[in-house]
Design a protein around this nucleic acid. Structure first.
Lengths: 215, 215
DNA sequence: GTCTATATATAGATAGAC
DNA sequence: GTCTATCTATATATAGAC
């Protein structure tokens, strides 16, 4: 039965300004990439959500890889927009912000799944998102290490390697918890666990618990 | 040029006992699934490493999904075999063991990649490894929470939710660090970070640092 | 137990009409 | 800007010969 299936009736999509269409595609792609992973996701499914054909996506983005790259940029841009023209928080406020992010994330499983799947998938050979995630982690580690340094009193400041290890660990806890939470949301309390680790680290350097207060 | 390409010469693979062939396939599949992710991995590539055709794999395992399930079982079985007929460690010894595992993992990037990619990919809709990883995390959380409870003196024991959060966090740190490390091995010290978090948690409950001593 | 041959499905991409 | 048509590549799976 290869041929004469009733030609699927498609109402031609309305002609829409490129910027708007691109934005629609990015939203749909972020969702589909997250639900299926980059490799399993198909342009067809993304196109269907937008109401166009997959060729339309290629017209706007050129290739599936390029679409992914732009999706990740878009995701970061919306994250930054959360600060509403303000600077991202520094010092202890950044640590509070991380706990609050973990809290917020419990209400947006789709985004969490996108991030968890794509970040891990990015470690595979030649993955198009590899640089994006490597840069992201480098940047985050620096920001968090600085925030820790700003938070700890000068006379208790640990060696730099310890600050770096702590920064890596905090990011790792947040990321690792996402996978556990996605698989078993009832049994994993992301914000509580993030707050626990941050407070345990701060206590190590002589500071009173504070992250748990955010909850 | 669709047809008469010189028929690729294949020397027919030696006939080998099924058990042995299955074992060879499992080893190759673990590696390829890890390198490419489950969805991008192809039976063809796995077969090539073993020196048979992809149909041979389907003969032994029936489907790609079933192969993945058996690969994960195989992986767990070899992990258990590490204890060489001994019980897995309990209490504080289990915590030491986790740090040592993080240390060992720095010498087996392939296995780490397999685990990182597959565990995250498993959260996608209908993924065949979902139950396997959910069960694995449930089991690990229980073991680690017990180990923590056994380690903390009775008069300082925190509420159960805190032990569970700590157990989730320790697993999360180990897993999250793997992704960062795979992307940037020079800049991420997995065992140091794991030891740091474990010691910070133990200190919170009045115990002297010990995990760092393992290194 | 392994192969060749083939069915079947689905992907990403290109060309050109409208 | 979107479509239809087509190309090309690659995948999983089945059937049957050896």
């Amino acid at each position: 039965m290869t041929s004469d299936a009733a030609p699927i009736k498609r109402t031609r999509a309305a002609r829409v300004p490129a910027d708007q269409r691109r934005a629609e595609i990015l939203v749909a792609a972020l969702d589909v990439f997250g639900t299926r992973g980059f490799h399993k996701a198909s342009l067809g499914e993304i196109a269907e959500r937008v109401g166009i054909t997959h060729q339309g996506i290629l017209h706007h983005f050129g290739s599936k890889e390029q679409l992914l790259v732009e999706v990740l940029e878009y995701r970061d841009a919306t994250d930054v927009a959360d600060f509403e023209n303000a600077e991202p928080p520094h010092g202890p406020l950044l640590l509070d912000h991380l706990v609050r992010t973990a809290q917020t994330n419990t209400t947006r499983g789709g985004l969490v799944q996108s991030y968890a799947v794509l970040s891990a998938e990015s470690v595979t050979e030649g993955h198009p998102a590899q640089d994006s995630f490597r840069d992201r982690f480098t940047h985050l580690r620096g920001m968090i290490a600085d925030a820790l340094a700003d938070t700890v009193p000068a006379d208790r400041r640990p060696p730099e390697e310890e600050l770096d290890a702590a920064a890596s660990s905090i990011i790792a806890v947040m990321d690792g918890l996402q996978v556990q939470w996605l698989l078993d949301p009832e049994r994993v309390d992301m914000p509580a666990a993030v707050a626990l680790v941050i407070d345990a680290l701060l206590a190590r350097w002589g500071l009173a618990a504070r992250a748990a207060d955010v909850l």
